[in-house]
Structure formats: structure tokens, C-alpha cells
Simulated assay, not measured.
Amino acid sequence: MNYWLVKSEPDTYSWDFFVSKGRDIWDGVRNYQARNNLKAMSENDLVFFYHSNKGMEIVGLAKVVKESYQDPTTEDPRWVVVELAPVKKLAEPVSLTKIKTDPNLSDISLLKQSRLSVMPIKPEEFDRIMYLANEV
């Protein structure tokens, strides 16, 4: 199993809206590295849901329910989507400030490639974030 983080602006597409949909495509990615990360996702991989710009915190956990396929919002075959489903809202959101000050998360992609919208998370980073969220 692999772990990932996806970002969304809560005013545009919030965790609560995602939960209300029950399952949705993760579309609109137009960055090659983020696209490659979508292509690398496998069914049942776990995905942190991060509110960017406003809130700036990991608020929920989702899972991949369908692997990558052509993005239906464009005819350009270079772009793909995956389908995600919510698993749970985190007991306590994990803020960017908390991540920045945690020495166990100093190499996390969220800090190294802050503008990337879809990124891998190492297993030990996943475990640490779950700990910080009071989920273990």
C-alpha cells in the first residue's frame, strides 16, 4: 500500500463537500509531476485530504477506489483522474504549522514541494500524521 496527499482549497472543494458526494473523481490536475503521482496510485491506497490556502491543514483520510483513467474534463489524453472515497474525518486536523515544527516530518513533500497538488507520503510520515491527528 502507498500513501498520498491531495490538496484542495476549501472554498472551492472542501472535505465536507467531498463527504457529501460519497465518492468523486480527482480532476483538473495539470502538472506533470502531480499527474504522474495520480498514475502511480493503486486501488485502496490511502490519501490525506489537505485544505490549502485557507485552513492549511490535513483534515481527512480518503482512499483510492478507482485507478487512473482519462480526465473527462479535457480531451487532452495527457491528463488523468483517479476516483477517491472518504474514509474518515481526522479526530484532530494536522496544521501546516504543526507539520513544519515536527522534526519527524522535516522531509515531507508538503514542505519540499509546497505547490504540488498530489504528492506521495512515506509510510513513517503517514504514521506520524495519524499520531498527530490522535488517530492511534
Rank of each mutant, 00 (worst) to 15 (best):
A133T: 01
L111H: 08
E92C: 06
M119I: 09
E135H: 05
M130T: 04
E83T: 11
K112E: 12
L111G: 08
L132A: 04
T97H: 01
S109A: 09
Q113K: 08
D107G: 05
T101H: 07
V94M: 03
L110R: 08
K100H: 09
S109M: 07
L105Y: 09
D107K: 13
Y131Q: 14
N104Q: 10
A91I: 10
S117H: 04
K122N: 02
S106M: 06
N104E: 06
I121L: 13
S95E: 02
S95G: 13
L132Y: 07
T101I: 10
V118T: 14
T97V: 06
E83A: 03
E124K: 15
R115L: 11
V118Q: 06
E135S: 05
K88Q: 12
F126Y: 15
S106I: 07
L96S: 02
S106Y: 06
L90G: 13
P86E: 15
V136Q: 09
Y131E: 14
I121C: 09
E83H: 10
E135M: 15
D127N: 13
K89C: 04
S106A: 11
K122T: 10
I129F: 04
A91M: 07
D127L: 10
T97M: 07
E125P: 08
I121S: 11
P123K: 00
L132E: 04
V94A: 04
E124T: 06
P120H: 07
L132T: 03
K88H: 02
K98F: 08
A133C: 00
L96R: 14
L96T: 11
L105V: 03
E125N: 05
P123H: 01
D107C: 02
N134P: 03
E124C: 12
E135W: 07
M130S: 05
E124H: 15
K122V: 12
V118I: 11
L84V: 14
K98R: 11
N104W: 13
R128W: 06
R115T: 14
I99N: 01
R128L: 10
F126K: 01
P123C: 02
L105G: 02
P103Y: 06
S106Q: 11
P93H: 11
K122Y: 07
E92P: 03
E92Y: 10
L90W: 07
L111T: 09
K88S: 03
S114R: 04
L132D: 01
E135Y: 10
K89Y: 11
T97Q: 07
V118G: 04
M130Q: 00
A133P: 02
P86R: 05
K100N: 02
V118K: 10
K112R: 15
M119H: 13
D107Q: 10
K98P: 00
S114G: 04
E125M: 05
A91H: 09
I108K: 09
L96Y: 12
L116G: 14
Q113L: 08
K89G: 05
V118S: 02
E83I: 04
M119A: 13
L105E: 00
F126P: 12
A133G: 01
M130P: 00
A133F: 05
I99Q: 01
P103T: 12
L111M: 11
R115W: 15
I99D: 03
Q113V: 12
P123W: 06
I129M: 00
A91N: 12
K89W: 06
P123S: 00
K98D: 03
L105P: 02
F126H: 07
L116T: 08
V118P: 00
V82W: 02
I99R: 00
D102L: 04
I121G: 03
S109L: 12
V118C: 10
P103Q: 05
R128P: 00
